[in-house]
């Protein structure tokens, strides 16, 4: 089935680019600690979801229910990642509470507020905000230089995560609005938005890959 030219970037190039960090991570997996292993699982989840989304879209089946489930799984993995890198007790306790509260919020959201056939424009921005908070908390924690900053893989991965979730915050929020009206103009806006999203995602993948490349025997 032929994919329109405008969707090649968002539908093929970027989803496939997840193989770059996966490849890098696979080569460095022996040296990876617990935080990096969690990121490895996150990349695998991304890969599976990308494949699933593309397959469903090709079958003309609405793939948005996958997004609802993915949001919860993504949040859980990201939370475990930050739980393993943040040393502050308060941060750890808050993440543990959110690990219970957020999935409940997502389920309540798709059961009572937003259909699973729509974008979860309440859950995804909230998730992005929480993850941004964790990312900034990690920045605050690593503000006292012990070793050379650039040598720590987690720092690079953290930058990627912050860049992706903050940049895509607006896209997560307005994704339903732009598909409501299916005329040509809104379609173009939609394409632009998801191109920007794909670019941010690509940057995150590259930064994660770069982070894994800094992973060495300690």
């Amino acid at each position: 089935m032929a994919i329109p030219a405008s969707l090649i970037y968002t539908g093929i190039i970027v989803p496939v680019s997840v193989l770059i960090p996966i490849g890098m991570a696979a080569s460095k997996r022996k040296n990876a600690g617990r935080p990096l292993k969690i990121i490895w699982y996150y990349l695998l989840l991304d890969c599976v979801v990308n494949v699933l989304a593309v397959v469903l879209a090709n079958q003309k089946i609405n793939n948005l229910p996958v997004l609802h489930v993915f949001t919860i799984l993504e949040f859980v993995l990201m939370s475990y990642f930050y739980l393993s890198v943040l040393k502050q007790e308060t941060a750890g306790r808050m993440i543990k509470y959110l690990l219970v509260i957020f999935p409940v919020f997502c389920i309540v959201n798709f059961l009572f507020f937003q259909s699973i056939y729509q974008f979860n424009t309440y859950a995804r921005p909230v998730e992005a905000l929480i993850i941004m908070g964790c990312s900034l908390a990690y920045f605050a924690q690593s503000n006292d230089a012990e070793t050379r900053w650039s040598l720590n893989p987690v720092n690079w991965i953290n930058i990627g995560i912050l860049l992706y979730f903050s940049g895509a915050l607006f896209i997560f929020s307005f994704s339903n609005l732009t598909v409501q009206e299916m005329n040509e103009k809104y379609y173009a806006i939609n394409i632009l938005m998801w191109n920007i999203h794909a670019t941010l995602l690509l940057m995150m993948y590259l930064l994660i890959a770069f982070g894994f490349s800094k992973c060495s025997k300690q």
């Binding site: 912050l162 860049l163 903050s166 940049g167 895509a168 915050l169 607006f170 896209i171 307005f174 173009a188 806006i189 632009l192 938005m193 920007i196 941010l200």
Partner: peptide
């Protein structure tokens, strides 16, 4: 809206 989307996401990315 085109401009706004670029400004918003671009602005935030620039900030980060």
């Amino acid at each position: 809206i085109f401009l706004l989307i670029i400004l918003c996401t671009g602005g935030i990315s620039l900030l980060v």
